[in-house]
């Protein structure tokens, strides 16, 4: 049955979607492309600049530093949130009244607006009035996230873990409850211990949802802006200036449209590339 009818009228039905995607993605993106190859001295007049902005960004140590900070941030939170999320999901009850209590509690941080999360943690961590800041100092730690870069990083990562581990928990939990009882029963009969059950039943069955979880957390954390902006504003100094914060500084602070546009495109391509690499690697090991 290979005689498929080809009807070109079908293209008409695709047109609305093409128009929609054009308006909300392609056209805005093209304006960025437009800025990235031009120079302006105000008055809304533009001159052709070629690829000099791209060269500038790629060779700028400011961009390199921001990129390194971004990578460090993203991989740190992934290394914490994924194992922690799986561990919490494993510890949650599968049946009974506590299930909904746990699920709602877990979902709460995800419902809080991002700038509120930033403001909450800012106040919570202030060394003079915040519960966390004062508490740590009372315990003898010299903690001040507004002055010491290490403390700022600690607070930033703690905040992200608090905000987003729930997402991993919910995904992993959904994966866990979909494992049929027969697997656990068979493992019991085969004399498997709880580590063997995790290693040979739960982890393999979680692979798909964890792939999604890692991808989502990777993309989101790589683009994170609001929370660190409200919490530290990129400081102290430039110590917590992640890519997006730096981008906004260049585009709206210094109003360097050309370099900012070039940086956005590079930023976008890095996310695209890394996501593709992640996805391909995980799907390949799946296929084996």
């Amino acid at each position: 049955m290979n005689n498929k009818t080809i009807n070109h009228a079908a293209w008409i039905f695709v047109l609305p979607v093409v128009a929609l995607v054009a308006f909300n993605a392609i056209i805005p993106l093209m304006t960025v492309v437009n800025y990235s190859v031009q120079e302006t001295f105000g008055d809304n007049t533009f001159f052709w600049a070629g690829v000099i902005w791209f060269e500038e960004v790629l060779h700028s140590s400011r961009f390199h530093d921001a990129l390194l900070r971004q990578l460090a941030f993203t991989f740190t939170i992934l290394a914490i949130e994924v194992p922690l999320g799986v561990a919490i999901a494993l510890a949650m009850p599968r049946k009974g009244a506590w299930v909904s209590v746990c699920l709602v509690t877990m979902a709460l941080p995800l419902l809080i607006p991002w700038n509120v999360v930033g403001a909450m943690w800012n106040i919570f961590a202030l060394p003079d009035i915040g519960l966390l800041g004062r508490g740590l100092n009372a315990l003898g730690f010299d903690y001040n996230f507004t002055r010491q870069p290490g403390d700022a990083w600690f607070t930033l990562i703690l905040m992200d873990v608090w905000h987003w581990t729930s997402l991993v928990v919910l995904l992993a939990y959904a994966g866990l409850v979909s494992i049929p009882d027969a697997y656990y029963q068979a493992a019991k009969i085969d004399g498997a211990g709880s580590f063997a059950i995790f290693r040979f039943i739960q982890l393999p069955k979680l692979k798909r949802v964890l792939t999604i979880a890692v991808l989502l957390r990777f993309m989101d954390s790589f683009m994170i802006y609001t929370e660190p902006f409200v919490l530290t504003g990129g400081g102290p100094g430039n110590s917590t200036t992640l890519l997006s914060i730096d981008l906004v500084k260049i585009a709206l602070g210094q109003f360097d449209l050309g370099p900012a546009a070039a940086m956005s495109l590079i930023y976008f391509l890095i996310i695209l590339l890394l996501s593709w690499v992640f996805y391909t690697l995980m799907m390949r090991s799946e296929a084996q």
Binding site: Y183, Q185, A186, I189, D190, G193, A196, K205
Partner: peptide, 24 residues
């Protein structure tokens, strides 16, 4: 026990599956 739906340990080879109860 053999269940209604086949239970195998996906990541293991057939050999390791059969050896699993003994190794445990």
């Amino acid at each position: 026990q053999v269940f209604q739906f086949p239970v195998v340990y996906d990541t293991m080879t057939v050999y390791d599956n059969l050896a699993f109860p003994l190794r445990n």
